[in-house]
Nucleic acid binder design. Sequence first.
RNA 1: GGGGGUGUAGCUCAGUUGGUUAGAGCGCUGGCCUGUCACGCCAGAGGCCGCGGGUUCGAGUCCCGUCACUCCCGCCA
Length: 614
Amino acid sequence: MAFEPLPKTRETQKMTQDLSGSADLHAFRSHTCGALRLEDVGANVRLSGWVHRVRDHGGVLFVDLRDHYGVTQIVCDPDSPAFADMELVKSEWVIRIDGVVKARSEDSRNDTLPTGAIEIFVREMEVLGAAKELPLPIFGEPDYPEETRLKYRFLDLRRETIHNNIMKRAQIISSMRQRMIDAGFFEFQTPILTASSPEGARDFLVPSRMHPGKFYALPQAPQQFKQLIMMAGFDRYFQIAPCFRDEDARADRSPGEFYQLDIEMSFVTQEDVFQAVEPVLRDLFVEFADGASVTESFPRIPYKEAMEKYGSDKPDLRNPIVMENVTDHFAGSGFKIFAGMIEKDPEVRVWAIPAPTGGSRAFCDRMNSWAQGEGQPGLGYIFFKDGAGSGPVAKNIGEERTKAIAEQLGLGDGDAVFFVAGVPKNFLEFAGSARVRVGDELGLSETDGFKFCWIVDFPMFEWNEDEKRVDFSHNPFSMPQGGLEALETQDPLTINAYQYDIVCNGVELSSGAIRNHKPEIMEKAFDIAGYDRQVLEDKFGGMLRALQYGAPPHGGIAPGVDRIVMLLCGEPNIREVTMFPMNQQAEDLLMSAPSDVSPSQLRELHIRLNLPKE
RNA sequence: GGGGGUGUAGCUCAGUUGGUUAGAGCGCUGGCCUGUCACGCCAGAGGCCGCGGGUUCGAGUCCCGUCACUCCCGCCA
């Protein structure tokens, strides 16, 4: 096994000194299990580690000894005083061995191991920690049920892939931190016990002993604190910040907690934030992408354009398909379904999803039945062969319009195009998934590399259909474009915010904004979203007060650390890059959290349980 | 809260149209083996077929319910 080699620390260097004569040897090891090479032949060494694998040939016995740094073969035969003891060791026992480094014969070298040119002939062995029969094997790391892996996480973490993932995570975080420091940012801690906030996700609550009936909340993000840090004049803040949200899990979302590279800067425009953050992320990805391509300069795509071209505010740009408006080609055409819709409602649009190389009836039919499976009436299409368009749509709109569509989209023989029609906000999501589907089915997407973009100009407000009112669509502390004047004169639903996301390969990596640092604009914004002054005072009093005593213009962003590590490790599941994750039911199977607490603990907190009936 | 998938040995999985004693590989235990590195060979132990109910002469297999895990929707400013 070869865990990613680490730069030698002072400690490991000391350990790799050749210490001849066992009287001088360190109690546990003179070298790590990844250290010894051909030039060490003849040295008396002491190694400690886990028994990775035993190969017992009766007369000769091999043990692969493993630690964090690597694997070294230990060999033993009846000439060794340790032979009887060595015959008893089992997988995952922790042992210490003393012995001499020997060169392996030419034909018995193992080139797959860095230590493969040598082996240790063991003279003495001590069992430091025996192991019971294993609930999951380390060697070979076969697939195991997640429940078992989480319950025995300490064993699971010995396995090569996840061990390397966790090491990569540590290196990524270290690099991130250094890059931020080098860019002139300062790392500050913010409270873990804070106040519940009415906006956003469900809070984790912590009862207060000293204030019966009152609760702290764990921060969903240090949002208000980082703004207060700016108001306190510290200018440039960052933190690898733990964030807590009591929401249900997904494959890419831990239940409960996750980390953000939280960033905030004073006296900045949106452009300044981009200039500060883009190089950090880009260079971080270049450093850890193992040679895969990384977007050099992140394109900026307005929210509205992203929705129109990709049907998503987190487009995967590895997929080259760009949707286009083809309404004019259908207005008044012979394809009565679409033509009729367009005539009835001026908001109706027809969008084309080009499908280069998809020009066969079989493929188009397959897409059509997929669409029906998604609850759609179907998916209109044209496919092109022999210099003309085929299929029912082409027949109905006629040769001229078919040709115009092909020209607009740059399609020719062997290609196809699909159509969705209706009021865009109703079909956007479906159109976006059809775009992804076409790209996947036709293998059009690049498979490696990291394609970044900024999504900018998010709307400040959105219509809450359930409650029939205007709501914040994103962060309520964002600065509306146009400032107070826009809030006072424009339809709220047309106002954009200085609000932006970074998207990579279809994953929303971070979200940020230029903040609203003017109390009167903030009051107006909350007023539009239906929060009166009193709510603002009650819930954001500290913040509001701070804004009234000289607040600098400021803004920031918060890239998600776990998702960055997932992308760089190529893992589809966040639990593969988290040391001690909870399961989907938000339980920690190793520590047994959440757990019951004693009646006296509850009494102290003035809490009486009122449990749901079975 | 809702939908999909899965559930057979410690693990990965096979198990025909409902039919005798539920199999394989890995792991484990014992034995043999002096150059392996996925060592090899021989033998053995190990099963409430997730759980409960039903249909049937007969259920791992069909039906209903339920539980667990997982993926998705809701949720995630």
